[in-house]
Design a protein around this nucleic acid. Structure first.
Length: 270
DNA sequence: ACCTCGTCCTGGTTGC
DNA sequence: TGCAACCAGGACGAGG
């Protein structure tokens, strides 16, 4: 499931080969991709437009086009781009250099949205809080958001308006690094714990980017390569295995409706 | 306003 | 061995 490190890895792989290229052909193979809008006409409109930048905001990929339009892609669970032919292709981009770029999405949760230049910023700002690796994500900001929420800490971290880009995996990994229990009410987190959490979120995501994301089911880079972050998971998916810090068996619970792994010793309930 | 839960979707895993 | 039920989860909408 692509989270910030996986989306950033995909962005970095696409940018050098997309930027400056014209979209010679745009084909939507699965109409669900653009639901609730009908993108078939817009797809035609995109043809001939030139990609000027490939950006990432939270878990969104943004293809900025010369005309001012932006193609906003959310990969959800199983979306991804592939330079080579693959299965479960839901859309195709053909570039003016003859290159074929396929959009693959087994489970079809992913979405494509085309917005005008002026609409992009308001849309992204409404969906996403600060970038966790950027200067706006401070312990003060996070502390203010946590203070007003009684939901489990992990559930609040999965709220993209609080911090953009965390998903189920990196939320668990960050909480382990910060030694915080995922089920604690968010408002119970103290200022020094919030500072630890900010550093832990940054470290967990930076490690993921460095390792080109984590591949254990579906995610691949556009070149078909696997990430290696899954070999570095401290808690995610490791029920019963020893905590890397204290050797206590990792426990599994549910938080915010999601499978949640943590160390009962390092991450005590209170 | 906040919180929880169901929904979307498919393939891999589990259990009988 | 076969097949159905279950499970995974990001975002969103319904309902409390």
């Amino acid at each position: 499931m692509p989270e910030l490190p996986e989306v950033e890895t995909i962005r970095a792989a696409l940018a050098p080969r997309l930027e400056g290229r014209r979209l010679a052909r745009v084909e939507i193979l699965d109409p669900r991709l653009t639901r609730p809008y009908d993108l078939f006409e817009v797809a035609e409109e995109l043809e001939g437009d030139r990609v000027v930048a490939v950006e990432r905001r939270g878990k969104y990929l943004l293809l900025r086009l010369e005309s001012g339009l932006g193609l906003l892609v959310h990969l959800r669970m199983t979306g991804g781009f592939h330079w080579r032919e693959t299965t479960h292709e839901r859309a195709l981009l053909e570039l003016d250099d003859g290159t074929r770029l396929a959009y693959r999405d087994v489970r079809r949760f992913g979405t494509w949205l085309v917005l005008e230049d002026a609409e992009l910023e308001p849309y992204l700002a409404a969906k996403n809080g600060p970038e966790p690796l950027g200067p706006r994500f401070t312990s003060r900001w996070l502390g203010e958001r946590l203070a007003r929420r009684r939901a489990p800490l992990k559930a609040v971290l999965l709220d993209q308006r609080v911090v953009a880009g965390l998903g189920n995996i990196y939320a668990d990994e960050a909480l382990w690094r910060a030694r915080l229990n995922p089920l604690r009410p968010a408002s119970s987190v103290e200022p020094d714990e919030t500072r630890r959490l900010v550093r832990a979120i940054r470290a967990a995501l930076a490690a993921g980017i460095e390792r080109q994301g984590s591949t254990f089911s579906d995610y691949r880079t556009p070149d078909g390569a696997s990430g290696s972050m899954q070999d570095e998971f401290r808690v995610y998916g490791r029920e019963g295995l020893p905590c890397p810090r204290c050797r206590t068996p990792i426990a599994k619970t549910r938080a915010g409706g999601r499978g949640t792994w943590y160390c009962p010793t390092c991450q005590p309930a209170t």
